[in-house]
Design a protein around this nucleic acid. Structure first.
Length: 420
RNA sequence: GUGAGCGUAGCUCAGUUGGUUAGAGCACCUGGUUGUGGCCCAGGGGGUCGGGGGUUCAAUUCCCCUCGCUCACCCCA
């Protein structure tokens, strides 16, 4: 058979094997989130393109070339969300949550979309778990989110991660720094890659992040944001580091760390995973103290992070990821003859409602084939109903581990299983 | 957007220096017990060798184009 259709490039089908793992990561996210007081919020997958352009930044790669955009009603441009923060802040403002609660903690889970060329650890549709704390400027909130993140990593069994942090300054100190950096880079313009030359005009901070060897050399001696912080930013960053140290959360200062989303201010950080190769950033986050106001809301502090589930799974590869729910006793119902099919179907429903994991055959297969299937499914018990059982008004219960069989009235099946 | 690699069965892959019915392992189905699983045995289904064009008596194999996938750059989760 030839396939008439195939999945859109970069959009993966997630089959049960893999879906189980996602479910586990998601369950852990909610569990850890709850302990820290973060509650789930679900916002639309589609938002006005302008929302993303305003928040993430007009000049960022994400906005300039990675969004799935299309025209909605009234020719208004809409986009599939490339990240989660913009939508959460939009919802927060639209419903004036700030007027009801001075500090809110949100958690979100779901697919994000970016139109990049797919490769290891990168899909066009990928999944993130994210956290947003809106309403406080205290360094302790930054630390709370980082603490939550590292707690989550521990919870899902990841080790070998590294936390890199930096401060990129706020609206007060950044413009001055940006200009100083721009002047410095301008002088050595010839040594920069083409990409960085255009960044010079649009977003000079991004040059610090360039991996091009030529640019690296220029960057070495470039002014760093951390040396140009205003007093507020400097003391904020100091407090964050002090608290992290006190909590024994290991981190390294990375003066060149600048995030690719423009809304970040002050403290930023990334988690690097082991054995991830080129795409080693598993999670990223930071503070965004001006975004809420820029989107038309009150002036208040906020911080958050997001973690990529596909990448987390990649760095967890080879590791046991526990099933999200404890396995229950499993049964397989065998009908030896057509007349047994209906009573089995009825019993099947009853057993399921009693909490058993139970299935039966719907392909009119032979007894042998049904037994094979039961075995393949590794069920604990098989219930067999054929001519003999029908006549005697009983059903045969077979313990697949021991091979032991017993005849008993249907009503006693449940008791019998629990007794053993 | 740029570069590289790869497309043979559901999966993992062999093979064809151009030549009749293209193979293996796993998976799937049936049977070996008139009503019983695993192991074993026997048999079976399933491929226009990614698609199109060219060269040739003959192409899955050679050439060209195209599509798809993967990886890397870029950027990010």
């Amino acid at each position: 058979m030839k396939n008439l259709y195939q999945a859109v490039k970069g959009m993966a089908d997630i089959f049960p094997d893999q879906a189980r793992k996602f479910a586990t990561l998601e369950a852990a996210a909610r569990a850890v989130g709850e302990r820290y007081g973060y509650e789930e919020i679900r916002t639309p997958l589609v938002e006005p393109t302008e929302l993303f352009a305003r928040s993430i930044g007009e000049t960022t790669d994400i906005v300039q070339k990675e969004m799935f955009s299309f025209s909605g009603p009234g020719d208004k441009s809409l986009s599939l969300r490339p990240e989660g923060t913009a939508g959460v802040v939009r919802a927060y403002l639209e419903h004036a949550v700030y007027a009801q609660q001075p500090l809110v903690r949100y958690l979100y889970l779901g697919p994000m979309f970016r139109r990049e060329r797919p490769q290891a650890g990168r899909r066009r549709q990928f999944h993130q778990f994210g956290i947003e704390a809106l309403g406080s400027r205290r360094p302790a909130i930054d630390v709370e989110t980082i603490d939550l993140l590292t707690c989550y990593l521990e919870e899902v069994g990841m080790d070998g991660w590294e936390l890199g942090i930096n401060s990129v300054g706020c609206n007060r100190c950044r413009p001055g720094f940006r200009e100083e950096l721009r002047l410095y880079l301008e002088k050595r313009r010839e040594e920069l890659c083409e990409n960085c030359r255009s960044r010079l005009e649009t977003n000079p901070l991004r040059v610090l992040d360039c991996k091009n060897p030529g640019c690296r050399k220029v960057i070495e001696k470039a002014p760093k944001p951390i040396d140009h912080l205003c007093d507020d930013c400097a003391s904020h960053f100091e407090e964050v580091r002090a608290l992290l140290t006190e909590l024994a959360v290991p981190f390294t200062l990375q003066p060149l760390l600048v995030r690719g989303l423009d809304y970040y201010t002050s403290v930023v950080y990334e988690i690097y995973g082991p054995s991830l190769g080129a795409q080693d950033a598993v999670a990223g986050g930071g503070r965004y103290d001006t975004l809420v106001e820029e989107l038309g809301g009150p002036s208040l502090g906020a911080a958050g992070f997001s973690i990529g589930l596909e990448r987390l799974l990649l760095s967890l590869k080879g590791r046991e990821i526990p099933a999200p729910s404890p396995p229950s006793i499993s049964l397989y119902l065998v009908a030896v003859m057509e007349e047994a099919f209906r009573p089995n179907a009825v019993l099947l429903s009853r057993l399921r409602r009693r909490g058993f994991k139970a299935v039966m055959d719907y392909l009119n297969r032979s007894l042998k084939a049904q037994m094979r299937e039961a075995n393949k499914r590794r069920v604990d018990y098989v219930l067999i109903r054929g001519k003999d059982e029908m006549e005697k008004g009983v059903i045969k219960l077979k313990d697949m581990k021991t091979g032991e069989e017993s005849l008993l009235p249907e009503g006693e099946v449940v008791e019998k299983i629990f007794m053993e």
